Simulated scan of single mutants.
Amino acid sequence: MRVAAAQARCPWLDREAGVRKVVDFVGRAAAEGVELVVFPETFLPGYPIWLSEAGGVEFADDRQEAACAAYRELAVELSGPEVRVVVESVRDHGVFTYLGIAERGPGRGTVYCTLLAIDPVTGVCGVHRKLVPTPEERAVWSNGDGHGLQVHEVGGVRVGGLCCWENWMPLARHSPYAQAPDLHVSVWPGSTRLTGDITRFVALEGGVYSLAAGAVVDYADVPAGFPLRDEVLAARHRSPYDGGSAIAGPDGRWLVAPVRGEERLVIADIDPAVVRGARRELDPDGLRARPDVFGVSVDRRRGFPG
């Protein structure tokens, strides 16, 4: 199977432009013979970069509240037009797609960091809400649940995915491992600093192919009307969101080392038979998991409606 990370420049807080970008990269993936493509964390409508660049956790600050309100307003609803357009594109091109969105839940008040799995035939087949946002992210995102911790069958390849620092949570990683995946996907805001170690670590620990997808964010793309634009631009000379998309094999060696700064598809061919061979030495969901000693359960009930 040919797989790819869509390392794209994020049209920050521009949902319509973001959807066009997703549709464009799905089409590019199909033209390259890709069967599965992965987009970065909250690619629609963009990662909340001001949280780390402009004092986003300050309380009783009118401009911070206005920034959060603007972000919430542009979050994506599962039943909204943005998801419908992407589902149609996935169906037209026949490319299974993982897409990171900031999902606005019921009541319009709650926003989740969500990873959608979109099948070309059945449409949205997975909605995973990030279990625990990082301390800064909690200013805009709520805790998710275990409902979406599912592995999906894609053309004979079993695939599961996690968001950003969930990939450093041992029990969160164990959930897909226990479902015997061939490929693990991780989605990130976009940084070679974040993906360099964990992508290879997951490949070795899980005995899987490991694909990381990160965005490229240019601070110049922050729209003029955003309340904290000046603070974001003044924070540093260059955006740290430089991509970092990468693909490692089950032996932990790079098929494609982290890509810095480029906007492109990061592509590799994978073979499930290689995964089965790699698990000869370490099988994290088999006998070496010692089910007679350890027991792990996952509560897959949806925490809130939606």
Results as ranks from 00 to 15, higher is better:
Ala234His: 07
Pro223Ala: 08
Leu162Gln: 12
Asp230Arg: 15
Thr195Ala: 02
Val222Gly: 06
Arg193Trp: 11
Ala178Pro: 11
Asp242Trp: 00
Ala180Arg: 14
Gly155Gln: 12
Gly161Pro: 07
Ala215Thr: 01
Asp218Asn: 01
Gly156Ile: 08
Arg253Ile: 01
Arg200Trp: 08
Gly155Trp: 10
His174Met: 15
Thr195Ile: 06
Val185Gly: 04
Glu205His: 08
Ile198Arg: 13
Ser191Asn: 11
Val157Met: 13
Val217Gln: 04
Ser245Asp: 01
Gly196Arg: 15
Leu204Tyr: 10
Gly252Asp: 09
Val232Asn: 02
Asp242Leu: 01
Val159Pro: 03
Asp182Lys: 09
Ile198Pro: 06
Glu153Phe: 04
Tyr209Lys: 04
Gly156Phe: 10
Gly206Cys: 08
Gly161Met: 03
Gly243Ala: 04
Gly161Ala: 14
Gly249Thr: 00
Pro170Glu: 05
Ile247Trp: 01
Leu204Asn: 09
His174Leu: 15
Asp197Gln: 14
Leu228Lys: 04
Glu231Gln: 15
His152Gln: 07
Glu166Cys: 04
Arg253Trp: 06
Ala220Thr: 08
Gly206Pro: 09
Arg158Ala: 08
His174Ile: 05
Pro170Lys: 04
Tyr177Glu: 15
Thr192Leu: 07
Asp230Glu: 15
Gly206Arg: 07
Gly155Val: 11
Pro250Asp: 05
Pro227Ser: 06
Met169Ala: 15
Val202His: 05
Val217Met: 05
Arg158Ile: 03
Ala246Asp: 00
Ala220Ile: 02
Leu171Ile: 07
Arg229Gln: 07
Arg173Asp: 03
Ser239Val: 01
